[in-house]
């Protein structure tokens, strides 16, 4: 037997969505502030007279954090089904693999270390 519809369900469902979205507002605000702060750090860190590998590593890590923050919160992967994350990561892995393969392919000395580890 099909249960009779609860007349309060639409309202309560919509109210729940509004409450959830209200919480997301603060999350989005905090993420955006963090993204601005990280970008500011990136702009400053390149002028630091320290070992280039430290700077390059820091830039890579900070960019990765920004990248992940945007896809996780702004692009709703945190709240969406895992399939969306898997689908996007398949593209990312293939893209990353292509970049790595090209770096090896165009290596001046194929027997030497990969170019991506000795850029510039």
């Amino acid at each position: 037997m099909i249960p009779s519809p609860d007349p309060r369900l639409p309202e309560s469902g919509h109210a729940a969505v509004i409450a959830e979205e209200h919480k997301k507002y603060f999350t989005f605000f905090n993420v955006s502030i963090a993204l601005i702060a990280i970008t500011a750090i990136e702009l400053v860190i390149v002028y630091f007279p320290i070992n280039k590998w430290i700077v390059l590593t820091a830039l890579g890590v900070l960019s990765l954090i920004k990248f992940l923050a945007v896809i996780w919160w702004f692009m709703h992967l945190k709240w969406d089904r895992m399939l969306c994350t898997i689908l996007f990561m398949i593209g990312m892995v293939i893209a990353g693999g292509t970049v790595t393969a090209l770096m090896f392919l165009f290596e001046e000395d194929p027997a030497g270390p990969p170019m991506m580890f000795m850029l510039f």
């Binding site: 990136e42 390149v46 002028y47 320290i50 070992n51 280039k52 900070l62 510039f120």
Partner: peptide, 15 residues
């Protein structure tokens, strides 16, 4: 985010 780092910022890395 990626372009800003790999095209622009890395050019400013000292040494």
């Amino acid at each position: 985010i990626v372009i800003f780092t790999v095209v622009y910022l890395v050019e400013y890395v000292p040494f």
